[in-house]
Design a binder for these strands. Structure first.
Lengths: 248, 248
DNA sequence: AAGTGGTCTAGACCACTAT
DNA sequence: TAGTGGTCTAGACCACTTG
């Protein structure tokens, strides 16, 4: 049943091995805490060299699937906590699908606005007009988060609402507008809900909300997106796993 | 001036190269956006093989110091944003020192408590007694955060307040109690301040606070610490940089 | 002593970017 | 076309853990 590695396809061997190992973990073939075959053994099994095996394993270690112990071996890490978008730049829809939650979206605002001081601080003076998109998202039919997104018109000329509903925003920008997305900075703050948001989120005016501001950058380090998300504090939490580094 | 690489010391070559490159970045020798020498060139300069150079560079890329462009080269990334403890398991004192902020600490509680349902959920049934330490921290003479920490007595028998004030908690556990710290999960939530906390933090009773719960784990995946931090929402924010991965 | 992961070499060929 | 990073091989020796 173990899928083999194909050498005649343009997929890197180490990547194929990663997928195989992830699959074996997900299927339960390799259980939590169980030691996986040694690097040399995996190399023989799949007929690839040890450095290539190591590349696959090391990436899985940094991704949190495996853990190593010098002199003992490599074992499957404890099941990863439900990790939110604080570690991966995934879209809301992907996140919800992965968690198996039902969600829906209402568009509150969708227009083009001129520059203001906040936008100028974020994007600099290069752009003068921005798409403003404000969406209210429900999870299991409860209001969950309001997200306001700004994108320079120049980067996504002609983008319409359909683009944003069918695929995720990032996929649209990548495929239709050929933007090479690089990374994002997320700024996390706790705040009290604003009057307008309180109504949409169906909470009273003293409720706490989790603010998450996102600055999206392209591969070339130019900013392409700024968004402000307001999550209901009583419904949301976010988890990050941080490694310990004893050396400086 | 460029420090060379020493082959007769028990420090890995790739690690020495990492330090050299970081130093060259910090000193301004390699500036932001500037392309660094190619992998082959670095190998010749420091007389090490290309795979070894690649190991150094790849780690610096994942640490955010460098960025690569296939076919073009490797360049120095934009200066990293002030990154909070959401990416590294550093102590409050280290964090403040790095930011050059003045801080102080008051111990609110310091006692041993028996197990309860929350602690049992966190630590399991193995431990029956826990150190409870509650500290109020001031930054620039303003109340900033209250942190409540639980540690099983069995793991740090005889730990006293001095241990906790002089060095950081983690350093104490590592050095005096020989615990091998592995990683931590941080759970982030927004909430409204509790009555008791409101007084200490000097905010009114409807204020928002940033809750950050930390579960600390040892190398062997056993939990050794549970803490709940309440940050003043108006004074704190936390930043994370997340990479974009187009493939699943 | 045997097996494991950690480090390192000296090549090779490919895919991508620039000119 | 030349130079870059991306992938891969087939070894080698070391440090660490366990029997």
């Amino acid at each position: 049943m173990t899928r083999g590695i194909q050498k005649d396809v343009p997929i890197p061997l180490y990547y194929q091995l990663k997928e195989i190992l992830k699959e074996r973990i997900k299927s339960g073939d390799l259980e939590t805490g169980q030691f996986i075959p040694s690097e040399r053994e995996l190399g023989e099994t799949y007929d690839i060299s040890r450095p290539t095996v190591r590349q696959a394993i090391n990436e899985l270690v940094t991704e949190g699937f495996l853990r190593k112990q010098h002199g003992r071996g490599t074992y499957v890490a404890k099941k990863k906590i439900s990790q939110w978008f604080l570690e991966n730049l995934t879209s809301f829809s992907e996140e919800m699908a992965q968690k198996g939650l039902h969600y829906s979206t209402t568009v509150l605002k969708n227009k083009v606005v001129g520059i203001n001081s906040t936008l100028e601080e974020m994007f600099g003076e290069e752009y003068r007009e921005f798409y403003l998109l404000e969406r209210l998202r429900y999870v299991n039919d409860e209001p969950y988060v309001i997200v306001t997104t700004y994108i320079p018109v120049a980067l996504a000329e002609g983008m319409d609402e359909e683009d944003l509903e069918k695929n995720s925003l990032y996929k649209t920008l990548e495929k239709n507008y050929r933007l090479q997305i690089g990374y994002a900075d997320r700024i996390i703050e706790a705040s009290t809900v604003s009057g307008e948001d309180a109504e949409y989120l169906a909470v009273d005016s003293t409720s706490a909300i989790q603010l998450i501001k996102t600055k999206g950058y392209l591969e070339n380090d130019n900013i392409f997106e700024y968004s402000i998300a307001r999550y209901r504090g009583d419904l949301s939490n976010f988890t990050v796993r941080v490694p310990y580094k004893s050396n400086s």
